[in-house]
């Protein structure tokens, strides 16, 4: 099972490394090298990520309305407000529903795309690019296309035109939460945008599975298709799958653009970031409560990520088995 990363190219490397190291004295100090290479990244990280996080933490204990340099310390009042705020708690539920839809769907869809493209004998590069292209589209632009032309509520919107062929009445897809047609719009736009990117990840992993395994399986009498997929392909993709699921979860947590653009002025279907935007940066300008919400959310993401790592083994890598 541990063959994925060691096959081919990476194998000779450790054998050569000691000789190279002794020759080039300057590079002999691994600690210096570590800081040299990661330093710029870590500085940027500290400046643009940790400082804002720290500032948020500080703000969350203050009454910060219309200011980011407040003076009135109010302890955990903001946290109490956010945790008893139905909208914020509701947004966590919205997120959970959204993640429950989008994570498995994207995972399955991008894996199937990868399997299909992987089997192509010609034009593979073409289809790979075609499916990957939507990744380059901005969420805002895609959301506007979805909102204004595909899922427009008027009779000449694309979906309503299709419905019209079957004699059905047009639907105002985004106007009302009942029935919840807006999920269809939200899930399809994200699927279209993301599937190509994860397809590339799966494709790379698929091409990394040693052909010998399939040959050995064939000799042992395994049938091509379902059997080899279930007992060889899928287990070999475990590391990639776990990474993909983790990334999808994080991205679902960060969902903002399409919700903000598709569901303007809606009181439903607000994921946590949209809710926090309205509290902190939107009309309310309550940076204290917004920061408290961000802290709660950050904590949740950390816990979920750690738990996920524990159960699915992301990061333990291949050595664990």
């Amino acid at each position: 099972m541990s063959t994925i990363t060691r096959s081919g190219v990476s194998r000779p490397a450790p054998a050569k490394a000691p000789r190279g190291r002794s020759r080039r004295g300057l590079r002999g100090n691994p600690t210096a090298n570590f800081w040299l290479f990661t330093g710029p990244f870590l500085i940027g990280l500290a400046l643009f990520v940790y400082v804002p996080i720290g500032w948020s933490l500080w703000l969350s204990f203050f009454d910060a309305r219309f200011t980011v340099t407040p003076s009135e310390f109010i302890g955990f009042e903001n946290y109490q407000y956010m945790l008893t705020n139905d909208d914020f708690v509701g947004s966590l539920i919205t997120f959970t529903v959204f993640a429950a839809f989008i994570v498995p769907t994207t995972w399955a869809f991008s894996l199937s795309l990868a399997l299909l493209v992987n089997r192509l004998r010609f034009m593979q590069a073409f289809f790979r690019s075609v499916f990957f292209l939507p990744t380059a589209v901005s969420y805002v632009a895609a959301a506007l296309i979805w909102k204004m032309s595909i899922f427009s509520g008027v009779r000449f919107g694309l979906m309503n035109t299709v419905l019209g062929w079957f004699g059905a009445d047009g639907i105002a897809w985004l106007a009302s939460p009942d029935p919840p047609w807006y999920w269809l719009v939200l899930v399809t736009v994200r699927l279209w945008l993301q599937a190509g990117f994860f397809m590339i990840l799966f494709l790379a992993a698929l091409q990394n599975i040693p052909q010998e395994l399939y040959e050995a399986a064939a000799i042992d009498g395994a049938k091509r298709g379902r059997q080899t997929f279930w007992y060889i392909t899928l287990p070999q993709l475990r590391a990639t799958s776990t990474a993909v699921i983790l990334l999808l979860l994080v991205q679902a947590y960060q969902a903002f653009d399409e919700f903000f653009n598709l569901l303007s002025n809606a009181t439903w279907g607000r994921p946590p970031l949209v809710e926090l935007y309205y509290i902190a940066l939107g009309e309310n300008q309550d940076y204290g409560a917004g920061s408290a919400g961000a802290m709660i959310l950050t904590l949740l993401i950390c816990v979920v990520t750690l738990l996920q790592g524990k159960f699915l083994g992301f990061g333990r890598g291949d050595e664990s088995k």
Partner: peptide, 30 residues
């Protein structure tokens, strides 16, 4: 690989944790 594992482990953990927070930090940096 396994011989180097212990010395690598700390750095990797540092980076991994940093990356994790970076992902989460997208929230705050918005």
């Amino acid at each position: 690989m396994s011989a180097m594992r212990n010395s690598n482990w700390d750095r990797r953990t540092v980076l991994r944790a940093a990356m994790g927070l970076a992902a989460a930090g997208g929230l705050a940096a918005c």
